[in-house]
């Protein structure tokens, strides 16, 4: 005899098991990195240049390289992404063009990161002759995070009640004035969230910077945007696969710094979202 109640219990148990199979390793990964990486982290590790073929010393140039890259990516992607979101939420009609734009965004989000690397190499490094440089890398990362910024900003813009726009129009404000003074200010938290998530993504990606900017070993800070730079994720890749006999602790510590950087950004994004929901005025 089949007993539906018992079947249900068994089924739910397996669902729970599947969930554990995903959730436990996540926790484990974080715990392993923290417990093995934390002991090696000190001020010197964060502020010194790599020494002895990256087997000792610190990771300061890699941290700064990532900061430069991420800053460059945002400077490029935020204005375009934000305006594109404004177009989609405020101007786009329900027509073929809009559909194509949305598909293009979906596709940009789906292009493999290493293909972005190829594209950056072909367009910025070779065609525009920027060489392997912070400029090339930032632009490549910027295009890569564009869909994240557009999608998040658009959601934020669309969550501003339509009635606010009507009120603004009814007072004789123009479309742009309405966007500028009513829609954008009230969408800022959502836009900020999306931007920070984009930052986190850009900070963690390796493949797009492999051939567009990353320097294997460059124990000094770049002097201009046309210089190569080290970057945290690439540095982690290098010391874990390309350089033999690196102390495990240094690898874990580098992974920890990268992880903390990325997770902090995500945390900030989540906190902003949370604060905003709590304070929402309408």
């Amino acid at each position: 005899m089949r007993n539906p109640q018992r079947t249900e219990k068994i089924a739910f148990f397996f669902l729970f098991l599947a969930t554990l199979v995903i959730a436990l390793p996540v926790g484990l990964v974080v715990i392993i990195i923290i417990s093995k990486g934390l002991p090696a982290i000190n001020w010197q590790f964060l502020s010194d240049i790599p020494r002895q073929g990256m087997r000792s010393g610190g990771i300061f140039p890699a941290i700064m390289g990532t900061v430069y890259l991420v800053t460059g990516a945002i400077i490029f992607a935020l204005p375009i992404g934000l305006l594109a979101a404004v177009y989609l939420s405020e101007y786009a009609k329900d027509n073929l063009l809009t559909r194509v734009i949305k598909l293009a965004i979906v596709n940009l989000a789906g292009v493999p990161s290493v293909v972005y690397g190829l594209f950056g190499l072909a367009l910025f490094v070779v065609f525009f002759k920027f060489g392997a440089s912070i400029l090339s890398g930032s632009l490549t990362l910027g295009i890569m995070i564009l869909p994240i910024i557009i999608t998040a900003s658009r959601e934020a813009l669309e969550s501003v009640p339509y009635s606010f726009r009507e009120v603004s129009y009814s007072l004789g404000a123009s479309k742009w004035q309405t966007i500028r003074h009513i829609v954008l200010p009230n969408a800022i938290p959502g836009i900020l969230t999306g931007t920070i998530l984009g930052l986190g993504r850009a900070a963690g990606e390796t493949a797009p910077i492999l051939f567009t900017v990353a320097a294997f070993y460059l124990p000094q800070l770049p002097k201009s945007i046309f210089d190569q730079a080290m970057a945290l994720p690439y540095h982690l890749y290098v010391i874990s696969t390309q350089v033999p006999n690196v102390d495990e602790k240094i690898r874990y510590a580098t992974a920890l710094v990268l992880l903390v950087l990325v997770l902090c950004m995500n945390l900030v994004a989540i906190l902003i979202r949370y604060q905003f929901r709590k304070r929402k005025k309408w």
Binding site: S163, F164, E166, V167, S168, S170, L171, P185, N186, K281
Partner: peptide
């Protein structure tokens, strides 16, 4: 000018 059905103050 227009006054709407519900009070709609701007934020």
């Amino acid at each position: 000018g227009m006054v709407f059905a519900l009070p709609l103050p701007l934020p």
